[in-house]
Amino acid sequence: MTTAATTTRPVSLASRRQVLQGIGAAGLASVAGCLAPSTTASGPGPAASVEADPVPALDPAGALGADRIAADPTAIPAPIDRDHAETVSVELVTEEVVAEIEPGVTFTYMTFNGQIPGPLVRVREGDTVELTIHNHEDSTMAHNVDFHATRGPGGGGEATLVVPGETARLRFKATYPGAFIYHCAVPNVDYHIAAGMYGVILVEPEEGLPEVDHELYFGQHELYTVGDTGEEGHHDFSFDRMADEDPTYVALNGSKAAITPDGHGSPTVAVGDTVRVIFGCGGPNLPSYLHPIGSVWDEAWATGSLASDPELFVETSTVAPGSAFVGTMSFPVPGDVKLVDHALSRVA
């Protein structure tokens, strides 16, 4: 997590030609007129320059479009309690939101439903998913969604490409169980994921999941920005740093220390409780070496493959970018259990 000594930091709004080249022929008709980035990029944040001059200081922090970007780890659908397939409706809204990575440090996130990770989608094996995706009118870019839980062109990416203000629909059947990532998959897909556009779809096996006392939902991804870690101001996106895989932040649920007492608070459980954690690694580039400090995973499905037997008593699971993890924990003693990426130098 080093930072560049000198930064070229104007925001360049790409020409229409660049946009169309970036989107590719398949999406030309749909995205004409949308804005896309070149080297650095900003959405609805502070005013942008079109001149490429070295600028050592950041713009002031942007006006916040949301008080928090971090998904509430407890705000997820309840376990499925039925023995038959149904049709499940899922509504996603793609929104570009200025929010704080940490106090005084703003970034123009791209999100599903204004949260990172995007909402946990929960269905049962055999269910039919009827997806509606709407790109918010204030968006500056085209978006879509690629579900790893389905077989079909682009995981639905082609069918769900939407320009600002547009709505698209997709129906697919969840034919295999597991936890799977979904993410925006327009060209510059790594940029859109690094800006926050990923989430998890949990396809429960037909027989359901073992009962637990609590379920929690987390996600990790990297933020590549202009400016130093912790430097106050508005951080534009840095394509150079992303190419170098040199993130400014590696964040759990989108922002620094989000699910801690210093952030938005921590979930509380009781001694003797059991917890199932559903975790998505959005990447776009770095795996998560997911470790619960002060515990182990009693069961770990490191790749989210719920059709497979879990590993037992696992200290650290490698969760690849573009992959999801499911693990359970028990708590015989009180205290705090901290979920970390055990590549500890990444902690920002």
């Binding site: 801690t260 921590s266 001694v271 003693v333 009180p334 205290g335 705090d336 901290k338 979920l339």
Partner: peptide, 10 residues
């Protein structure tokens, strides 16, 4: 972080 409340179990 998950905060666990309850009796100690030495």
């Amino acid at each position: 972080m998950i905060h666990v409340e309850g009796d100690e179990n030495p």
